[in-house]
Nucleic acid binder design. Structure first.
Length: 235
DNA sequence: GCGACAG
DNA sequence: ATCTTGTCGC
């Protein structure tokens, strides 16, 4: 068991921030992932005006089929009462509890996880993807649809074009702004835990299928938002 | 004091 | 995040 709790819900903002500062030091920015056979995507949605939190995890097989289609290995949806409001910078305290509950119900353990949100591209370098990765003790990548912090230029127009996302007085590179699809607003990719930026970008690009979001996150997004094309949404 | 601000 | 119809384009 970790000496310092990885999270403690019901913390006042200033205490949550202090905890993030301590945990940020535990996040690994160098690659430390084994062979990837199971890729997971995680996302959180809300129901009933935000009263209910809905966590969705989708596990895909890697590599995809010859026709480019990904095989869904497992899906889990977990619902529980929402415990905290959304506060920029403290997103993990609102979403991670439900995500953990969903992972506990997973029969298979993924080798790499893509999370909807920032990884280290966070004011204190502990976005939701990093926090979840620390807790799960698994490699994670942050895939966000918009910027939380940092500076960047405009990435080129072609799919795969990207520019670095920097922050702080020393221009630290905290992520990348990636054109995941032509003519579409770019996404923000960053290492979560145990994944370097080059590797994070590599995996995200390899999971793009004519869409703006990589398959793991796209499918989890669908499930969490209830749109899920299929039925059997547990929870 | 004034903006910015993942989902 | 969520509330929401039709509409433009590959």
């Amino acid at each position: 068991m970790p000496t310092v709790p990885l999270h403690d819900w019901n913390l006042a903002p200033r205490d949550a921030i202090a905890l993030q500062r301590r945990l940020a030091g535990r996040v690994e920015r160098e690659d430390r992932l084994g062979e990837v056979r199971r890729l997971a995507g995680v996302d959180i949605g809300f129901e009933q005006g935000g009263e209910v939190t809905r966590a969705a995890v989708v596990v895909l097989a890697w590599p995809p089929e010859v026709d480019g289609g990904f095989t869904v290995v497992e899906e889990v949806v977990h619902r529980e009462p929402t415990r905290m409001p959304y506060i920029p910078g403290l997103l993990s305290f609102r979403e991670v509890p439900a995500a953990l509950a969903a992972f506990e119900r997973l029969a298979v353990t993924p080798d790499l996880v893509m999370v909807d949100g920032q990884g280290i591209a966070h004011p204190r370098r502990l976005g939701v993807a990093s926090h979840l990765g620390l807790w799960l003790d698994l490699p994670t990548i942050g895939v966000a649809k918009s910027r939380l912090c940092g500076r960047h230029g405009e990435p080129g127009p072609e799919r795969g074009d990207w520019v670095p996302l920097t922050d702080g007085p020393d221009d630290e590179v905290i992520g990348a702004v990636l054109r995941s699809r032509a003519k579409v607003k770019p996404i923000f990719v960053s290492g979560g835990h145990r994944v370097s930026l080059p590797t994070a970008l590599d995996w995200v690009i390899r999971c793009l299928v004519r869409t703006k979001l990589p398959e793991p996150t796209r499918l989890a997004d669908r499930l969490a938002s209830r749109r899920g094309g299929a039925a059997g949404a547990k929870g």
